[in-house]
């Protein structure tokens, strides 16, 4: 049994759980069940769900925000200022949502079964010029942010600009944008950190949600032994991913902030509350729109908020 797995870019922290999963599954089955992980060779990243639906490959990674209409239910996890603080919390809320029948039904349209998430840190922003630490400071700020996150910044008076990620460095260099919102590993690899003088350490405006899915027929066609090997490896793979991200990327991030003397902007609780209030309309609108499509949107949203409150001990 050999599965083709479609991911994109280069091997990096963001794909380490897939690599680990392949390794574990192969070990557990004595090399009978292997995975051939292809970085962009099998599909374009925004077409991975299509490939799964066709049956061209058996496993794939994608990000919900790339194409909201393909996966309206999962985008609940990309709403702004949900209050996710770290990767463990991101994993917990994601997997809870993936287990919901409405979400599974949504993905079943693509003949896809959700296997696990690829937890991404919050898209905190790096910026040039004077640090901005209040809602008022965001007025007129040109920020590179796409999709829902862009909407969130628009809600607080900023001007979101769509620049492709590989042009983000130049866009900052030429003041096309003042700030860029990325996860830390992307700030590092697209070198936006090299331009930055400040970073919002705790703004936590939101993130993208990028699940790993498998083709249902392929999954059901596995022998019991192979399926068991796959299922039982998920938790370990995720754990490996989170460890790796924290011990490598985030540690390197802290070092670079220090080396380059980048100001860490910490927002006060009142300021954060103002951000939440200013962007609540986006969540409300999401709920309204998705409910109209017959999705239990309110329920999904409430589940996420309740889970986070529980984890924050509130």
């Amino acid at each position: 049994e050999e599965w083709n797995v479609s991911v994109w870019g280069k091997r990096r922290a963001f794909t380490e759980h897939v690599e680990k999963l392949a390794e574990l599954v192969s070990e557990k089955t004595d090399g009978e069940f292997t995975m051939n992980i292809s970085y962009g060779g099998l599909s374009k990243n925004t077409e991975n769900l299509d490939g799964i639906s066709i049956g061209a490959f058996e496993m794939a990674q994608f990000c919900a925000g790339y194409h909201e209409d393909k996966n309206p239910t999962i985008t609940v996890l990309e709403l702004p200022f949900l209050g996710v603080r770290n990767l463990e919390e991101e994993v917990a809320v994601s997997h809870m949502i993936y287990d919901h029948p409405a979400v599974q039904e949504d993905l079943a349209r693509w003949n896809a079964k959700l296997l696990m998430t690829s937890p991404m840190p919050q898209y905190n922003i790096v910026g040039t010029g004077d640090p901005r630490s209040t809602v008022e400071d965001f007025e007129g700020m040109r920020v590179r942010a796409t999709g829902g996150l862009g909407e969130a910044f628009r809600a607080v008076g900023a001007v979101p600009t769509s620049v492709p990620s590989n042009e983000a460095y130049n866009a900052m260099d030429s003041n096309v944008v003042d700030t860029v919102a990325f996860a830390q590993h992307a700030h590092l690899s697209f070198r936006t950190i090299d331009q930055a003088t400040w970073w919002t350490a705790n703004l936590n405006p939101g993130t993208v949600n990028c699940p790993i899915v498998v083709n249902m027929d392929a999954y059901e066609g596995l022998s019991d032994e192979h399926r068991e090997a796959l299922d039982s490896s998920v938790d370990e793979a995720i754990e490996y991913y989170v460890d790796n991200y924290q011990n490598n990327v985030l540690k390197q991030w802290d070092q670079i902030l220090e080396e380059k003397n980048v100001t860490k902007v910490e927002f006060s609780e009142e300021e954060l509350q103002k951000f939440r209030e200013a962007t609540q309309g986006i969540a409300d609108q999401w709920i309204e729109e998705k409910s109209a499509q017959g999705i239990p949107a309110q329920e999904l949203y409430d589940m996420v908020k309740a889970k986070l409150a529980e984890m924050h001990g509130m």
Binding site: H67, D69, K70, T146
Partner: peptide, 14 residues
């Protein structure tokens, strides 16, 4: 059956 008959949308403004 979907709004705008759409099951796939662009990344930035949908």
């Amino acid at each position: 059956d979907a709004p705008n008959w759409s099951r796939d949308s662009t990344i930035d403004i949908g």
